[in-house]
Design a protein around this nucleic acid. Structure first.
Lengths: 187, 187
DNA sequence: TCGCAACATGTCAATACTTACATGTTGTTT
DNA sequence: AAACAACATGTAAGTATTGACATGTTGCGA
């Protein structure tokens, strides 16, 4: 579906940037809903350049280090906006290895079940904490801004990520409670 | 990470089945956390057979139609149980095109924003309704069963899917409310 | 000034997954 | 009897993604 293409176009549309910048944005800001390694980004940038959707100018950093600063073209912007406005069918539900393991829970001992759930819970709690830290530092949450600002998109996807993580944690806690109630000795 | 391998081993461990059966299970029961097309399943079955993790016997359906009924081997079960008990690091957050588009919301008009959010909301509501129907028909939810039954895994992942969908809907509703409050004419 | 982290850009092989191609049988409905 | 859905199994080409290989610069701290 060429989603990486449009993610890159959208980011370059916001600000001109290098492949390295894109890599950082993917693995910091977008990490809650999209990401890519540099080995995928650089070939895609080349392709988009060949297709005339972006252009670059070479910028020097220091004496020798050449970096390519990419900008979007008219054609690129048109393509991006067209993708953005398109109404998509629901994607397939995302894959989730932990849920898959949970499906096979009957093949675990109760000790294994609980060990898995508690480990997952710890990790999810740590992740939620990080997200909440990001939120507390987010410019949009500090002052009521306009929905037409780039920070607004940032802000609502972060809010969504926090809600998602909260729900995962609630689900884990519910499972743990249920399993423990069955684990207790019967008399 | 060979997740398809373990999903298949786990299902065949529950019951012996054919590739076609696996395909149906993937796209009905597991669809909320894993799935695969038959073009991925058949080659994987061949590989697992070659590796000695599963075996098959040919069964006739009618006069001519040969189907392969796969069963797990000792080695296969051992491999599966080992995978199941392994504690995994948190997976990267699943990719989500709608959230990506939401991130770029500033490039949309207010009408486009609302059109996108309402369309997504309709689809999510329909999906939730289906999940809730499945739940109401689920054997485990009808009678309090034991957590050691295969239905229990089924039941808790379904519960998780419903919670996840509820949260997505709540997030969408929150976004819509916020956008609409900004859309109203100022005077 | 040495070492190391971060900056910067690429390729290649392998894995994962999708879409289309390809074929034939069985059961049900018209 | 014809048509069609569901059963049943496979391959091939292409896209998406990962992990490893490969190389060199710049800035900072010890």
């Amino acid at each position: 579906m060429r989603t990486l293409k449009y993610a890159i176009l959208g980011l370059i549309n916001r600000n001109s940037m290098t492949g390295y910048d894109l890599m950082k944005v993917f693995n910091l800001e977008l990490v809650n809903f999209w990401y890519a390694k540099h080995s995928q980004i650089y070939p895609e940038l080349k392709k988009l350049t060949d297709d005339g959707l972006i252009t670059y100018e070479t910028v020097l950093l220091g004496d020798k280090l050449e970096k390519k600063l990419y900008s979007i073209t008219q054609e690129g912007r048109k393509d991006f906006l067209n993708w953005l406005a398109k109404q998509d069918q629901l994607e397939p539900t995302p894959k989730d290895i932990f849920r898959l393991k949970t499906f096979f829970i009957e093949s675990m001992t109760r000790e294994e079940m609980l060990k898995q759930f508690y480990y997952q819970l710890d990790q999810r709690k740590a992740k939620l904490k990080k997200l909440e830290t990001s939120m507390s530092q987010h410019p949009y949450s500090k002052e009521i801004s306009d929905i037409a600002s780039p920070e607004y998109g940032d802000y609502i996807v972060l809010k969504g990520a926090i809600m998602r993580e909260h729900t995962y944690i609630d689900w884990l806690k519910g499972c743990i409670k249920e399993i423990e109630s069955f684990t207790k000795p019967h008399f």
